[in-house]
Amino acid sequence: MFTLKALKKNKTVRYGVPMLLLIVGGSFGLKEFTQIRYDAQKIRKKLDPSLEAKVNTQRQSVILEEEYEKMKALNLEEWKNIRGPRPWEDSREYQEQQRARQSRQA
């Protein structure tokens, strides 16, 4: 009897043990919930087999040397960097101004 009353009055047993149980139990619970989340994402990401075959063939057909030859064929000497309109500017008006500048320069 004496030990049971002493344990009930002990603050560590009264507050500490339930807190530890909550923390340890919560971590196991969260592990299960996060695992469900990642499993659901894997299932959702799976593609239709016909679509997956198309994607895989497109990835395999790209060869670095071919892409390099395409880039070499481009005329980069006459390239001009033109900035886009700012958020407060009217994009159509800005495009007309850019076209007018290009026609004057040409």
Rank of each mutant, 00 (worst) to 15 (best):
Y94K: 05
E65T: 10
V17W: 10
T3G: 05
L47A: 12
E93I: 07
A53H: 15
L64C: 00
Y68R: 06
Q95I: 06
S61E: 14
S103V: 09
G26Y: 02
N56K: 15
E65P: 03
V24H: 09
E66D: 15
E69P: 01
M71I: 02
F2W: 12
F28D: 07
I23D: 09
V17M: 12
Q95D: 05
K54C: 10
Q41D: 07
P87G: 02
R99C: 02
D39E: 15
F2T: 13
L22D: 10
Y94L: 01
Q41W: 05
I36M: 13
N56H: 11
N56C: 03
R83V: 02
I63P: 01
L30K: 08
F28Y: 12
Q97F: 00
Q97A: 05
K80D: 03
Q35E: 15
M71E: 08
M19H: 08
E32R: 12
D48C: 04
R92D: 08
D39F: 03
L4C: 11
I43S: 09
E93Y: 04
Y68D: 02
K45S: 13
E65Q: 13
P18F: 04
M71Q: 09
A53Y: 13
Q102M: 13
Q58C: 04
E93F: 03
A106S: 14
Q97W: 02
R14G: 09
K9A: 13
Q95A: 12
P18A: 13
T12H: 10
S103W: 03
A73G: 04
L20G: 08
L30T: 10
N75L: 00
E89I: 01
Y38A: 06
K5G: 13
S91A: 07
D48N: 14
L30I: 09
K46I: 05
G26M: 02
K80G: 00
Q60L: 06
E52W: 10
T12P: 00
L7Q: 10
V13C: 05
L7V: 08
